[in-house]
């Protein structure tokens, strides 16, 4: 393995659960305000995952009061305190960008049967 590949994949965090596209997850984000920092939860559906190693990122979409918010989190960032899975989703696409044009019942993700 070449050195850059090693740098990208060594020492990755192992405290994150396995999750995939369509899952609803809680991302605990560390937020700095002045010299104080606190942790805020961002709950939403995973609509895309991108990259590998320390360049991996996840796009989370949530809808609050009719306004959708999408945030892209670099998974390895120290600002991502923790991630927990709330719901597993059953989906048929690798990227759920089609949710962007939909609202209400059409924007649902079916829950995975276990």
């Amino acid at each position: 393995m070449n050195i850059v590949e090693q740098m990208r994949t060594n020492g990755l965090r192992d405290d994150l659960p396995e999750f995939s596209i369509g899952d609803t997850i809680t991302v605990a984000v560390r937020i700095k305000e002045g010299d104080k920092s606190r942790i805020q939860d961002f709950i939403g559906a995973v609509i895309a995952r991108q990259g590998t190693g320390n360049e991996a990122s996840v796009t989370v979409r949530k809808v609050t009061g009719g306004i959708a918010v999408e945030r892209i989190f670099p998974v390895e960032s120290p600002n991502v305190d923790s991630i927990s899975v709330k719901k597993r989703g059953r989906i048929r696409r690798a990227k759920l960008y089609y949710l962007r044009g939909r609202t209400g019942r059409k924007a649902r993700i079916r829950e995975a049967r276990r």
């Binding site: 070449n2 050195i3 740098m7 560390r30 320390n54 360049e55 670099p74 120290p78 600002n79």
Partner: peptide, 21 residues
């Protein structure tokens, strides 16, 4: 030049870096 990747600052800021031997 070996390639590029990224590192994180403690503040969470991502820095693109080039790795040079």
């Amino acid at each position: 030049k070996l390639g590029m990747t990224r590192t994180f600052e403690e503040s969470g800021r991502s820095i693109p870096v080039t790795v040079i031997q």
